[in-house]
Amino acid sequence: MTGPILVIPCSGIGKVFGTISREATYWVVEDLREGKADTLCLSLLVMGDDDTRRLVKTHRCIAVDGCPAECARKNIELSGGQLAANFRAVDLLREHKDLKTQNVTFLDENGKKLAGFLAERIALKIDDLMKEGAKL
């Protein structure tokens, strides 16, 4: 399986978790692993868009969910996508209880730190997947 790894955030808009998952995703696809990773709209996938479904079937995917509802992971799996890994922003908040954050629209400093931690984990996972892919 070749091509970029698709990093798909949950699209959450109601809570800060979704904003963290989205910021972490942009961090990975535009900075940390530019060219090795890309993203797409989860809503298109959930709505059954043919091109989007084809993409998740032909590329390895990493779900980046905000909350335990795990909309990204579930919808990648329901679409027959190649789920290679999944992360949850809410888990990161539990690990870093000192980093309280509330702002949903624009992340505050703590929110940005959490997004940075999450982005680093995703980037490392991409490296692992790339190595595995190279061995195939």
Binding site: I13, S43, V46, C71, L78
Partner: peptide, 11 residues
Amino acid sequence: VTICLPLFLAG
């Protein structure tokens, strides 16, 4: 009020 669209769809 709002709801996350994927949650609305997948919920």
